[in-house]
Design a protein around this nucleic acid. Structure first.
Lengths: 351, 351
DNA sequence: TTCCTTTAGTAATACGTATAACTAACCGAA
DNA sequence: TTCGGTTAGTTATACGTATTACTAAAGGAA
């Protein structure tokens, strides 16, 4: 009969006694109804069991107290965060902000917020992102992973968190809720390489990064070069940064012979670094050396960089649409799809 | 004695029966202990009341089941999100990614994640950000607001959410937990204006945006111009975008007389747009027209834009440090401080 | 009057975690 | 033998919300 439990009701409560945010309980108290009634009124557009008078009273009190729903509590109860995560390697690479914008444009109206998680392109930070996601902080993810592969990512899908990967090539359908959006990176790089060859270049070098889409782009370039009877010429530096691009370019320019007449950066940021190094060496572009990039980030236009346009905004929007669809009832069961968007070769003055 | 409550224990449970993420209860069940014991072991480095054997058993089971703490539940319980929000007007403006990086560099090691909220510089989205924060989604905020003023922001501080504003000038100390970091925008603009005058320019125009730091920069410019006996010449376009900058520049170039010989963009992005428009009009920079900017975003270097360097990374880092300090016990009581960092005039080829 | 239906809600519970308060079992000392 | 202390935990509760199951009161019909 648990008689002894008639303990005094613990006077402490919250020791801070902060004026904290008002809860539904506070509203209920002030309006003279139960917390359940408040929850009903605040969440349903129509409440058959609550008359208009009570309803408006509750709403007024809520307004007056400045009530805002407690997000954690809501998440806990409904297991829905109404949040998408966007996992990217480097927010300072101008390619990604455009992607994020595309995401937000679709996610916002659908009621989802977008959060950004920066991995720095490092394996341990990518793993941390997965952990972060497994904590239930987002309902879905759009991501670029340089290191993790499907086996490591499958855990997300298994726990009911759909993932859309930003890929560099078509992926076969899979049973899990892992989709992808991509442009055909190999074909795009091939097209750019053909352009360089058509402009008369024979010694064409490619600046690569160690990880990420650079690999696939290199394949396209390599294939076309060999097809044309030319030998591929790769310089690899670590990251997708201007410093990496500049460093690689300096290595090329330091050569005594076989100095290339054209350089293809595996990304615009790399190409920009290359341009800088070339200019610093007193070379004119494209007079002394032609330079091409990949991505068509906003500054490419300003600098006259010939490049491959990726529809970043559309990729983001498409990814968001895919997630929204996945999160509709039953959406998680559909097989994983790979969606292709078209690239475009943008000819400017650097080639 | 509540006899009737011996109702059948509701067979449903979770109808989905999803393999969902394992909880502490699952671990407890598998390890043959109570949920409380699991919580203790998982959270405390040392548990006097749990012997090593039990401890390792619990940890093993947790590992085996792939346990991850449920973030919403944790937040609800502890009222701590371990998250900072970064509220900015436009993630595609290259100034902000640098700021975010600075933030992350300090926040990460301190255990905080950083989320980005993009307001698009619009009043309603700024209000939405406040709402979002009041839902308890972040422990602290670093923000740039173009429209909201202290009265609207005070609600955050009152609910215990410290805010660090990215400002354009010194702010007097206040009683609330609202701090700011800034460079002296007026003085910086003044210095740049002096440079332009020293280079012999007399007709110097400034391209402004409607909101944000542009105003304060215009003051510095205006003061120096008048001091030198010259008349300030403002062109205002809506946003901090290249299109705005280009449009404003075209308006200047369309003039029949008093065409400026130098143009000072209130931000680098505006200046970039201006450069573009000038080039499109066949003008050489700085031969026909000199152009200066403000911010020193990464591409400014590539384009040889003379500009004011804001230490974006350091501003972000300082803001994060301020938040971390605020969130230490008692930290919310200190008066709001304004921290100044130094700007630098970066002379390049565009002036 | 009795029974049924509608109205206007309320009570209870679950979500997963953290923590304060408690306790059963055992050992050693006075 | 009784008391005190340690060991190894457990029980109970709270955080704020959403939702299901329930019910008291009033009104109307038979």
């Amino acid at each position: 009969m648990t008689t002894s439990t008639t303990r005094t009701k613990r006077a402490k409560g919250r020791d801070t006694a902060a004026p904290g945010r008002p809860t539904q309980k506070d509203i209920a108290l002030a309006a003279g109804v139960s917390q359940a009634a408040v929850s009903l009124v605040l969440n349903k557009a129509e409440t058959p069991s609550v008359p208009v008078a009570t309803r408006t009273r509750i709403l007024e009190v809520a307004e007056e107290l400045g009530y805002r729903p407690n997000h954690p509590a809501r998440m806990l109860r409904s297991a829905r965060t109404m949040t998408f995560a966007c996992v990217i390697p480097d927010i300072t690479n101008p390619f990604y902000p455009g992607l994020v914008r595309g995401l937000q444009t679709v996610a916002g109206p659908a009621g989802y917020d977008v959060l950004i998680f920066d991995t720095d392109g490092r394996p341990e930070r990518e793993a941390r992102a997965i952990d972060w996601l497994l904590q239930g902080r987002a309902d879905g993810v759009v991501a670029t992973f340089f290191h993790l592969r499907v086996p490591q990512l499958a855990v997300l899908a298994r726990k009911g968190i759909p993932l859309v990967r930003l890929e560099s090539q078509h992926k076969p359908d899979g049973p899990l809720a892992i989709d992808s959006v991509y442009i055909d990176n190999a074909e795009a790089a091939a097209a750019m390489t053909r352009l360089l060859i058509a402009r008369g270049h024979r010694r064409i070098a490619m600046i690569q990064a160690e990880f990420g889409p650079s690999h696939r782009r290199a394949q396209g370039y390599g294939a076309v070069m060999r097809e044309a009877g030319l030998s591929p010429d790769f310089v690899t530096d670590s990251a997708y940064s201007e410093e990496s691009g500049a460093r690689a370019m300096r290595r090329l320019l330091d050569r005594k012979r076989d100095r290339p007449t054209a350089v293809f950066g595996a990304s615009d940021v790399l190409a920009l670094g290359a341009m800088e190094a070339a200019r610093a060496a007193g070379l004119s572009i494209p007079g002394d050396i032609a330079i091409a990039g990949f991505d068509d980030i906003p500054v490419a236009k300003l600098l006259g960089l010939t490049t491959v346009r990726q529809p970043e905004f559309d990729l983001g929007a498409l990814a968001a649409e895919t997630l929204v669809r996945r999160l509709q009832p039953g959406g998680l069961k559909a097989p994983g799809k790979s969606h292709e968007l078209k690239f475009e070769i943008i000819k400017r003055s650097s080639v």
